[in-house]
Simulated assay, not measured.
Amino acid sequence: MILFRPTGQKELDLIKESGWKLWPPRLPEQPIFYPVTTFDYAEKIARDWNSVLTAPDNIGYVTRFEVSREIEQKYPIQVAGGKEHTELWVPAEDLETFNTGIVGLIEIVATYRDGQRVA
């Protein structure tokens, strides 16, 4: 299963430190890790939220990665709001297990600054 994750610079730096192989542990105020199932949904978050509202440097990224069938079956797709907003809900305490199911590397597929795509 191919998944996408909108992310900011701090999280991206931690992914890079892992050799592009692992998602970093959640912060105490982040009980769920939620990768999304479509580029469009991830783009909307990275462009409209991460790169404009929350990131101190006004930059947001869309990352793409693949997970094994075991992980896909363990975390069923959830609908968050509209039918086009589909994501997996991975409890923070399961993130280490989730990371073992990543196939290949996490990659950046889009970059947004101030709400505009730059790469």
Score class of each variant (00 low, 15 high):
Met1Ala: 14
Met1Ile: 12
Leu3Val: 08
Leu3Pro: 03
Arg5Pro: 07
Pro6Lys: 13
Gly8Thr: 06
Gly8Met: 04
Gly8Ala: 04
Lys10Pro: 00
Glu11Asn: 09
Leu12His: 02
Asp13Ser: 05
Asp13Gly: 06
Ile15Val: 14
Ser18Val: 05
Gly19His: 06
Trp20Met: 11
Lys21Ile: 03
Trp23Val: 00
Arg26Pro: 00
Leu27His: 09
Leu27Phe: 04
Leu27Cys: 01
Pro28Tyr: 01
Pro28Met: 02
Glu29Ala: 13
Gln30Val: 00
Gln30Gly: 01
Pro31His: 01
Thr37Asn: 09
Thr37His: 06
Asp40Leu: 00
Tyr41Arg: 08
Ala42Met: 03
Ala42His: 10
Lys44Arg: 14
Ile45Gln: 00
Ala46Met: 09
Asp48Ser: 07
Ser51Gln: 06
Val52Lys: 11
Val52Tyr: 04
Leu53Val: 13
Thr54Val: 15
Asn58His: 15
Val62Arg: 15
Val62Pro: 12
Thr63Gln: 08
Arg64Gly: 08
Arg64Leu: 08
Phe65Gly: 09
Phe65Met: 12
Val67Ala: 10
Val67Ile: 15
Val67Gly: 09
Ser68Glu: 10
Ser68Asp: 10
Arg69Val: 09
Arg69Asn: 12
Gln73Glu: 13
Lys74Ser: 06
Tyr75Glu: 03
Tyr75Leu: 01
Val79His: 00
Val79Lys: 02
Gly82Met: 01
Lys83Glu: 11
Glu84Arg: 07
His85Val: 00
His85Lys: 12
His85Trp: 10
Thr86Gly: 03
Glu87Ile: 00
Glu87Val: 00
Ala92Leu: 09
Glu93His: 15
Glu93Gly: 07
Glu93Asp: 15
Glu96Cys: 06
Glu96Gln: 09
Thr97Pro: 03
Thr97His: 12
Thr97Ala: 12
Thr100Ser: 14
Gly101Arg: 03
Ile102Asn: 06
Val103Ile: 15
Gly104Pro: 01
Val109Glu: 02
Tyr112Pro: 03
Tyr112Asn: 05
Asp114Ser: 13
Asp114Cys: 07
Gly115Phe: 08
Gln116His: 14
Arg117Thr: 11
Ala119Asp: 15
Ala119Glu: 15
